[in-house]
Amino acid sequence: MESLIRKNIQDLVAYKVDAPQYEIIVNANESPYDFPMILKRQFTDDICNTDLNRYPEACFPELLNELSAYTGVPTDGIICGSGSDELIAMINQAFVNAGDVVVSHSPSFDMYNIWAKISDSKHIRILDLPGHIPDVDGIIKAACDNHAKLLYICNPNNPTGYTFAKKDIIKILDAVPSLVVLDEAYIEFFGESDVDLLPNYPRLLILRTLSKAFGLAGIRCGYALGNKNIIDVLYKVKAPYNLNVLTQKMAVIALQNRDKVFKNLEEIKAEREKAMAVLKELPSLTVYPSGANFIYFETPFAEKIYEVLLNRSILIKRFKETGSCPESIRFSIGKPKENQKILEIIKEVVYNEA
C-alpha cells in the first residue's frame, strides 16, 4: 500500500482537530456568539421552500450578488469555496507545479504549508523579526531570488495577531513576481481591508470567510476576490457543486442581515483589549498586539496553562516550542464570563509556577 502513496504525502502529518466536547472552547478563533435565532428561523423557512432533490447553483449567483454588495468587487471577480481551506487548495491546483516555490511569513496559518507539501512545491517561510514584526524585505528577497509562484500574506496574521501596514503590502506587490494571496480571514475585527488595491494589482488575490466575524464556521463558506482573469482560472479547478444549497442559503441571509450579525463585533474587540491588559500584567508572559479576535502570548508556562485549562473543560490553543518560537498560547476571545474564568485560571497557574 505504501508504495502507492505519493512520496510527498507519505510523511505529511494530517491536520486533525480536537473534538469540541468542552465547556468552553477558545482554540479555533470562532465567534463565541451563535448565529441569531431570528435568522435561523428565516433560513428554516427558506429551506422548507427549496427543492433539495436538485443540485445547488454551481456558480452561486445570489450569493455572488450579496458578496459584491458587501465588498464592492464585481461578481466576476469573486469565487466561493468550502471555507478558505478549499480556496487555498484550488489556488495550488491552478497555479503550483511540483518544484515551484511558495513563500510566506512565519509563524502563520498551517494550511499554507500543508498545501505546499501536497502540491510538492518548496515552501520558504520567512521568520518574523524580533518582537514578531514581519520581515517585509526578507519576504521580498525570498520571492524575487527564488521566482516564487505564490506568496501568502496573512493580515491580520494567525496566530500572532499582527497586521501589515498598507504601504508594506504595496511594497511587496510592487516588487515580487508572484501571485500574492492576501488572507483577510479576520479583517472585520481589524477594519482596514486592502480590497481597494485589486484594480491596480492583477496578481493580487484576497481570501475572506464567513467563519469568523459572521459566526458561521459551521456552514463552511469562504470566498476569494481578485482580477477576473485569476478568478476564471480558479473556476477551472472548482468542483461543480462545491457549496451545498444549505450553505448558500445561510450565507445569503447572513450577508443581507450583516448589521444584526455584526452586533457583537465591538464587544469582542473590547473584551480582547480587557484580556490583553490583564495578561500584560502577569510575569513571564510576552503578549503581542492583535488586530483579530484572539490574543497570542509566549510563556514558559504554556504547557501547564493548557493542561490546567483542559482539566477544567476549557480548550485553548497551545503551540509547542520550535527552533524559532518559544512555547505559546493563542486565546480566542469568548464571552465576558468565559474570558474572566480563563484569565483567573491563567493567573493562578502563572503565580504558582513563577
Rank of each mutant, 00 (worst) to 15 (best):
Thr160Ser: 11
Tyr162Cys: 09
Phe164Leu: 08
Phe164Ile: 10
Phe164Gly: 01
Phe164His: 12
Ala165Asn: 13
Lys166Ser: 14
Lys166Arg: 15
Lys167Ser: 15
Asp168Thr: 10
Asp168Phe: 14
Ile169Met: 11
Ile170Asp: 09
Ile170Lys: 15
Pro177Arg: 02
Val180Ile: 06
Val180Thr: 09
Glu184Phe: 02
Tyr186Asn: 11
Ile187Lys: 05
Glu188Val: 12
Glu188Cys: 10
Phe189Ser: 07
Phe190Arg: 11
Gly191Leu: 10
Gly191Val: 06
Glu192Leu: 14
Ser193Pro: 15
Ser193Leu: 13
Ser193Val: 09
Asp194His: 14
Asp194Val: 14
Leu197Gln: 03
Leu198His: 01
Pro199Lys: 06
Pro199Val: 06
Pro199Tyr: 06
Pro199Glu: 03
Tyr201Trp: 09
Tyr201Ile: 08
Arg203Glu: 05
Leu205Gln: 02
Leu205Ser: 01
Thr209Phe: 00
Thr209Pro: 01
Leu210Gln: 05
Lys212Asp: 04
Lys212Val: 13
Ala213Trp: 04
Ala213Arg: 04
Gly218Asp: 13
Gly218Arg: 04
Ile219Ser: 00
Gly222Met: 05
Leu225Tyr: 00
Asn227Lys: 03
Asn227Phe: 00
Asn229Phe: 13
Ile230Tyr: 00
Ile231Trp: 06
Tyr235Leu: 11
Val237Arg: 07
Lys238Ala: 12
Ala239Leu: 15
Pro240Asp: 15
Asn242His: 14
Leu243Cys: 04
Val245Lys: 10
Val245Gln: 11
Leu246Glu: 05
Thr247Cys: 08
Thr247Tyr: 01
Thr247Asp: 01
Met250Tyr: 05
Met250Phe: 03
Met250Lys: 11
Met250Pro: 01
Ile253Gln: 00
Ile253Trp: 00
Leu255His: 03
Gln256Thr: 02
Asn257Tyr: 03
Arg258Asp: 13
Phe262Tyr: 08
Phe262Lys: 02
Lys263Gln: 12
Leu265Met: 12
Leu265Asn: 07
Glu267His: 11
Glu267Tyr: 08
Ile268Lys: 00
Glu271Thr: 03
Glu273Asn: 10
Lys274Asp: 07
Met276Leu: 09
Ala277Asn: 14
Val278Met: 10
Leu279Phe: 08
Lys280Pro: 06
Ser284Thr: 07
Tyr288Ile: 05
